[in-house]
Structures are given as C-alpha cells and as structure tokens.
Amino acid sequence: MAEVYGSARPRKRWGRRLLITFVVLLLIIGAALVAVDRFGASYAEREIGDRVAQQLTEQKATAEKPDVTIAGVPFLTQVLAGNYQEIKILLNKFSGPAGDGKTIKMDKLDIRAKDVNAPLDTVRSGNGDIVAATVTGVGTLTYPDLADLIGQEGLKLSERDGKLIGAAPFQALGQTFNATGTANLAVKDGVVSVTFADVTAEGLPNIPLVRTLVDNYVKQLAFNLEVPALPLGLKVQKVEPRADGLYVTTGASNVSLSSGGL
C-alpha cells in the first residue's frame, strides 16, 4: 500500500504542474490577442483620423487633431465579420467658412458613423466600397458667435422656454428703445434661416409709422447661416435653442467612407 500511495503523489504533482502551465499559456495567448486587437484598432483609428484631417483641409475648415475611437470589442472580430458597430470621431475647436467671409465655430463636433460595412477583401485590397449606414454629428454654436454671424450691432441672443430670443437697441423718434423678439429657425438644403417675429419695445408708441420702422428693422436681422462643408457628407438637419447655445444636428445616410474614411 505504501508503494501505491508513493506513486500517486508524483502523478498528482505532475498533473497540477500541467494544469498551471496550461493556464499560464492561455493567459499569455489571451494577453497577446488583446495586444494585437488593440494595436489593430489603434492603427485603424489613426488612419481614419488622418483622412478626416485631410478632408478638413480640402474643405478649408480647421480643427484639432481628430480623436477617433472604434467602438466594440473585440476589434478583430469586427474586421473578420466585415462590419463595425460604431466609429466615433470627435473634432475639437472646429471652424469653417460660412459665406460672406464669415466663419462658423463649434467648440466640439461629435460625429458617429454606425453600422459600417467594410468587407475584409475590400479593406485588404483597397478595391470596392466601404459604407456607413448612418452618420450623425452634433455641435453647439454659442449665442455670441451666432450674433457675430448675424452682424447686427448690440444684438444679444438667448434661450427662453425652448425658443431663441433676440434683443437689440432700436432707434426711433429720436430715442433708443430695447427691442425684443422671438426668432424663427428653419433648415433647408443645409442652410439655417433666422428671422424674427413678435418684436416689441417697451415704451414705443403703437402707431403705423413706428410699426413700419420696427418691421424694417426686423428685416435687417434676417440671416441665412450657411454651415460649411462637413466631413463625411454631413448636412444640417435640425437646430434647437438650448441654454448654452444653438444645438446643431447633422446627418447623412449610406455614406461612402472609401475615399475619406476607413
């Protein structure tokens, strides 16, 4: 019996060592795969960032270096499947031409490309098309910057109850009045139209002559905001007054990323 027990112990030790070795190998392989996965994702993110920066230059727009993140783990699984869940592109300090020598500025432009179809053969060969089902972008245009674009001296813009409110000094009958009105916002073909209505001024006589002066003044405040060309074919779809500025939503569908994206 002593010999039996003596022979079992070495086997048990050998089996334990084998199990430990196997676990260590799995950990090493797992760590290597994670490293390769992250390296591949980082490389792709840099490539996308470089191409977006190139687009900005071509469109005479500027921003800090694009911050690109490919969402979803693992990255290599998405490569093999030929489909990427989401690609995030953050442009800080974005600015671009807005027509008439003016510049539109956004402190941050947050772009998301979702459901990106990129077959492995296309990525490998460079032939074929890579398409994002949807691309959206959001940014905020501050009210002082928007007032500068409108160009009316003394104009102050703010948000009240979800509406854009404008206030500016108004000359009439040899006096200065503070006129206040609600702005109407409309988006058509990527152009944001700003017009004012219901303009009133405390203490201003309600007579036809004065009303005509007010109406003419209101027409001067009308402004078409031409949003500059954005990366990935984004077009303005919606604008919404918020406490910190005019919230701009852009979007596009079935966007080809082959020439300026992935």
Rank of each mutant, 00 (worst) to 15 (best):
L56E: 08
V123E: 08
R112E: 12
T103R: 11
A252M: 03
K235L: 11
D67Q: 14
D50A: 11
Y217L: 12
R17T: 12
A98M: 09
L232C: 03
D189P: 03
A201E: 04
F196V: 13
L18P: 00
T200M: 07
G72A: 00
A229W: 00
Y247A: 13
L56I: 06
V34M: 11
Y247P: 03
R160E: 15
L225D: 08
A243H: 07
Q175Y: 05
A8W: 04
Q59K: 15
L246S: 10
K102S: 15
A118D: 00
V187D: 00
V248G: 04
P205G: 10
A243F: 08
L225C: 08
G245L: 00
N83Q: 06
G30K: 02
M106Q: 12
Q85M: 08
V24P: 05
Y217S: 15
L225T: 07
F223N: 04
A167F: 06
A168H: 03
G6F: 09
Y143E: 10
A71F: 01
V138Y: 08
E86Y: 02
T77D: 07
V248T: 04
G128K: 10
K60A: 12
F75D: 00
L19R: 09
T200P: 01
T122C: 01
Q171L: 11
Q220P: 08
Q171S: 14
T140N: 15
R112K: 15
G233T: 00
L164N: 01
L149M: 03
V138W: 06
G251P: 01
R51N: 06
A71S: 14
V210R: 03
L155F: 04
K88F: 10
V255A: 06
